[in-house]
Simulated scan of single mutants.
Amino acid sequence: MAILLVWVGGVAAVFLALSVLAFGVPLDKGPSVALLLVVISASGWLYLRHTGDDAQVTHTVIFKFLISIALPVLAFLGAPLLVLSQFYDIEIRLWQAIIAGLVIATGWLTSAVFSELERKRAKAEKLRDYHKALYAEIGYTLQTLLDRGEAETEAARIVAQMRGSKKFIPFIPREHHDFLYDSLVGEIEVLPRVTIDAIVAYYSQIKSMTALADDMRGEAFRSPGMQQERRILMYQDYFEMRKNAFAMGQHALRLIKEYAEKGPAAAEALAARINSQAAAPSDLSQGSE
Rank of each mutant, 00 (worst) to 15 (best):
G186P: 12
D197W: 05
A155Q: 13
I158C: 00
G186H: 11
L191H: 03
L191C: 08
T195F: 02
G186Y: 13
Q161K: 14
A155W: 11
H177D: 04
I188M: 13
D182Y: 05
I169Q: 11
I172M: 05
I196S: 12
K166A: 14
L191K: 01
F171I: 07
S183C: 04
P170Q: 04
V185I: 10
H177S: 09
E189P: 00
H176Q: 10
P173C: 02
A160K: 15
I172Q: 06
F179G: 08
G186L: 13
E175W: 06
K167P: 00
M162P: 00
L184F: 05
G186S: 09
T195H: 02
D197V: 07
I188K: 08
V190W: 04
P170T: 06
V185L: 12
E187F: 07
F171T: 07
R193V: 08
R157K: 15
L184C: 05
A156G: 10
S165K: 09
G164E: 12
E175H: 11
R193D: 14
P192L: 09
I158E: 04
S165G: 11
L180T: 10
P170V: 04
K166H: 13
A155E: 11
D182G: 03
S165F: 10
I172N: 07
K166T: 10
G186F: 07
H177Q: 13
E175G: 05
V159L: 14
D197M: 12
A160H: 04
D182M: 06
H176G: 03
P173V: 02
E189Y: 11
K167R: 11
F168A: 01
V185C: 08
R163Q: 15
F179P: 01
V194C: 09
F168E: 00
F179S: 12
I158V: 11
F171R: 10
R163N: 14
Y181N: 01
R163S: 13
D197K: 15
G164I: 06
R174D: 15
M162D: 04
A156D: 15
I169N: 03
G164D: 14
I188Y: 05
R193I: 06
L191E: 01
D182S: 06
R163V: 08
R157C: 07
E189H: 08
Y181F: 14
F171A: 13
I188N: 08
S183K: 06
L180S: 02
I188E: 10
H177A: 05
S183T: 06
I188H: 07
P173L: 08
D178Y: 09
I188L: 15
A160P: 01
P192G: 05
